[in-house]
């Protein structure tokens, strides 16, 4: 993470008032810096990636994360391009209240997984989305439009997802009725 780092998150949770006040100010500065960063790269973002930056997924529970690589049909004659053509996608499914959101990324490279800091003291149960950042993937600039989403999760781990495009799908879960007649998510 570049702006909303696990270190800053831990400082924000300091039990010392002065340290917590400093972290609050540092977080506001990080927010302002991120806002400026997004404004700077906005012209280069396709509409689907712009929508990704507008989604509020804080507290969404991560239901599943899969990185899938499969061979794909290729439209050119094989004597022109004899090698196999592969497609790689990442599928993230998240739940917020009664809604499931699925993000499908066309990957430009493998997802990078970053472990939690050893001093990360928060629960590792029910991993959920804390904060994310959108960036341009530096190693591909300026030749390809490749983006990078960095996500900090509640167990202290972080992902870096390098992708060229993203699809989003959302649906509402059916609401069941409990034995006492109360409505509850299925």
């Amino acid at each position: 993470m570049k702006f909303f780092t696990p270190e800053l998150y831990l400082q924000f949770n300091s039990t010392d008032d002065q340290a917590a006040d400093r972290a609050d100010a540092a977080w506001e500065a990080a927010l302002a810096a991120y806002r400026q960063h997004l404004a700077d790269i906005q012209p280069r973002l396709p509409s689907s990636v712009r929508r990704l930056t507008e989604m509020s997924l804080h507290d969404a529970e991560l239901l599943s994360l899969q990185e899938i690589t499969e061979p794909s049909g290729f439209p050119f004659p094989t004597d022109f391009f004899p090698g196999p053509f592969w497609l790689s996608v990442a599928v993230l499914s998240l739940r917020q209240d009664n809604q499931v959101t699925t993000l499908i990324y066309a990957l430009a490279d493998h997802i990078r997984h970053h472990p939690a800091l050893t001093r990360w003291r928060f629960s590792k149960q029910r991993r959920h989305w804390l904060y994310d950042e959108l960036d341009l993937a530096p190693q591909f600039q300026p030749y390809r439009a490749v983006f990078l989403q960095r996500i900090l999760f509640s167990d202290g781990t972080a992902l870096e997802i390098p992708f060229s495009s993203v699809l989003m799908h959302q649906y509402e879960l059916p609401v069941a009725r409990a034995a006492n007649g109360a409505r509850r998510p299925a």
Binding site: F12, A23, F122, S123
Partner: peptide, 25 residues
């Protein structure tokens, strides 16, 4: 019981507030 403190995120809008939430839920 156990809780953690979360700062606001920009995508939650200009009126987003820091908050405590149970840890875990």
């Amino acid at each position: 019981g156990s809780a953690k403190r979360c700062p606001p995120h920009d995508s939650a809008g200009p009126h987003a507030l820091p908050h405590y939430q149970p840890d875990p839920r």
